[in-house]
Write a protein that binds this DNA or RNA. Sequence first.
DNA 1: TATTGTTATACTCTATAACTATA
DNA 2: TATAGTTATAGAGTATAACAATA
Lengths: 152, 152
Amino acid sequence: MAFDDADERSEGVFAETIHSVIGYQLRRAQLSVFHRFSVAFDHLDLRPAEYSTLVLIAENPGRKQTEIADALQIKRANFVALVTRLADRGLILREQSATDRRANALYLTDCGKQFLAGAIRVQDELEHELVQMLGGDAARGQLLDLLQRLSR
Amino acid sequence: MAFDDADERSEGVFAETIHSVIGYQLRRAQLSVFHRFSVAFDHLDLRPAEYSTLVLIAENPGRKQTEIADALQIKRANFVALVTRLADRGLILREQSATDRRANALYLTDCGKQFLAGAIRVQDELEHELVQMLGGDAARGQLLDLLQRLSR
DNA sequence: TATTGTTATACTCTATAACTATA
DNA sequence: TATAGTTATAGAGTATAACAATA
């Protein structure tokens, strides 16, 4: 990932201007949080997009691939490999839709449900860690609200 | 980039759970803001990392490549091509340091200073647009504060 | 020995175009 | 014709390893 111990070298470099740019701070925070995610999920070998896919399938069983992909803003072409990996690991089922034989209906397997339960525990711990960094639940609510205003 | 008009297909997909995850919303907001950046900077053919590099060189003339790269958390190996492109465009100078002949001291050219002045105007406009989405300057300050707490 | 800039390389993420089978 | 899933492919971004020149 990122985050080596090379920050001492940039001591004394004036960076206040760029640090007050929303996009710059957004990117830094996002990289930091995703890095924490990858550390926390290392033993589960699960990436952020895979986690959100499992959550969405769990709460919307039987939906088409394209519907899940669109909800996550993932191009359907890129979603194929992601879904294939989850299916190969036995976490989800790709079932040909009865009403539209072009479409795949997605479901969690029992194994996938168990796996997701564990993943949610890891994610909840991470979220709690982030809330502590933010300074409490109110700050988290504020942040989510502000971020949502920037999306679209 | 992203953002095609495929959101109608995900209508009715329940996504509240994943939408309340900090990392997920961070990623969405970051992608949205970077997309706006790429639209705004299309005519200048400038990427976010290049913009921040120009700003840092302007405020820290004569610094080594590694110092600027570290301040931006860019690996020095990846910084080479970025600096080469800016130098090839005549925006920056790579001068062999007098005190350490291994090192390159970085400077903006006069052309680079003019170019950056224009780029800063574009960035300021974008920032203003984002502040309006956030609901004012106070919200922007809050957001920057919260984001900084998540970085490292 | 350690550091600077560099090259080579690989992996992930994301984007588009085009195919097939269905509708 | 249009859509769902798929394949192929290309461009960014980011990671590591290793080398030459210099300290």
